[in-house]
Design a protein around this nucleic acid. Sequence first.
DNA 1: TTTTCTGCAAATCTTTTGCACCACG
DNA 2: CGTGGTGCAAAAGATTTGCAGAAAA
Lengths: 147, 147
Amino acid sequence: MNAGLEALRSQGRRLTPQRQLVYGALLDHPGHATADDLFAGLARRLPGIQRTTVYRTLDLLVEVGLARTVRLGRSTSYEPVREGVESHQHLVCDQCGSTADVGLPALFDRVRSAAEAVGYQVSRIDLVAHGTCAGCAAAGPATGLGR
Amino acid sequence: MNAGLEALRSQGRRLTPQRQLVYGALLDHPGHATADDLFAGLARRLPGIQRTTVYRTLDLLVEVGLARTVRLGRSTSYEPVREGVESHQHLVCDQCGSTADVGLPALFDRVRSAAEAVGYQVSRIDLVAHGTCAGCAAAGPATGLGR
DNA sequence: TTTTCTGCAAATCTTTTGCACCACG
DNA sequence: CGTGGTGCAAAAGATTTGCAGAAAA
């Protein structure tokens, strides 16, 4: 299950229970999670774990290619890298804050072409679309007026 | 020139020199700027200005719809909202950190359709493509190996 | 004159770093 | 057993907040 983590050993890194838990929590988390989200969940299972460790582990996972960062809100979020996916699209509801993923398979190629026209060689794409989710649209379109 | 700022008055907000300068600096800044970028530039013209004020003003500009936030690096960036543009695409070079803009006019519609299929009503799209710029690709493709 | 804004200082939140002990391999 | 990893504490960077005086309208 934590098969991906085996990659650590081949790079001289060690496979510790903390790392397994952090990676597992990341895989379990729907969508994406902040370091603190993961820490909160993990603290229950492994009381002694430290925020620092979660940050350092996420950093490591990104370095090794098992995770990637996504910037949505005030703090950095992480999501596991799954095979065959080089592009991620997130939908964010500006009213309730809920998020969802949407797939646009052809997006990557089109952005790559456009970027090459400007001299850039693109390796990864993050797209964030803001709007209103079905729930909020139904609940109260009028609610969106005030501030 | 600072015509957009007039909108403030109609909302009961005040048009102060600080706000004019912050908005002006934002308009002048190529691409996007962090609160601190703007503060640094502004401090020269208006020595007494405070970081706090820049933060509060940018917040206000976003609230009024004259600016929007973009999350690229560790800190939040801002860019002015220009008419007729409801989607922004940024290219970021992972090697030198340089950024560029690229236009994909059709992107907005395609994302909107995909999002509607999942029940979302999209109003704005931010896309960040990571890769290598022409300069870095030419300079040293080998440089990218180490860490 | 009446609020709203600004400057200043300090608090808060997120993320990073230094160091000593612990544990994977 | 040796080096890399973790916990702990404290630092660093970004952003927010409380309050009193300054200034738009």
